[in-house]
């Protein structure tokens, strides 16, 4: 499979995430779109690692491909930590304003 197919797929998913962040106003869905963007980048990292493993320069040391996948693993770890704090913030926001509309929060005060 050509790398360009993966590039096109990842960019499409990433753009869908960006459009979601721009268009939707439900804070939870905006947050989910950020997760989608993280996932599309993860997919591209894995695809590039497999492409790099196919190149002749990397034949000698195959650990580079593992390195990229460890990176993806750490991205998942950070995403999990981010989600727990972000959802706590959304719960707090709902408790204070009784709404999860992000347009409602155009200022930090009040």
């Amino acid at each position: 499979m050509d790398i360009k197919a993966y590039l096109a797929l990842s960019l499409t998913l990433f753009t869908i995430g960006i459009i979601g962040v721009l268009v939707r106003r439900n804070a939870i869905i905006v947050f989910m779109c950020i997760e989608l963007m993280l996932n599309s980048v993860n997919l591209l990292l894995v695809a590039f690692s497999k492409m790099h493993a196919a190149s002749t320069a990397a034949k000698a040391s195959l650990t580079f491909a593992s390195d990229a996948q460890i990176f993806v693993f750490f991205i998942m770890i950070v995403a999990a930590a981010e989600v727990s704090v972000g959802l706590a913030i959304i719960v707090m926001m709902y408790r204070n304003t009784h709404s999860i509309d992000v347009n409602f929060l155009n200022r930090l005060k009040n």
């Binding site: 499979m1 050509d2 790398i3 497999k50 195959l62």
Partner: peptide, 13 residues
């Protein structure tokens, strides 16, 4: 990018 993506092979994962 000349190199194709290796699918279903490779032990890195």
């Amino acid at each position: 990018l000349a190199h194709p993506v290796m699918m279903k092979v490779g032990e890195a994962g």
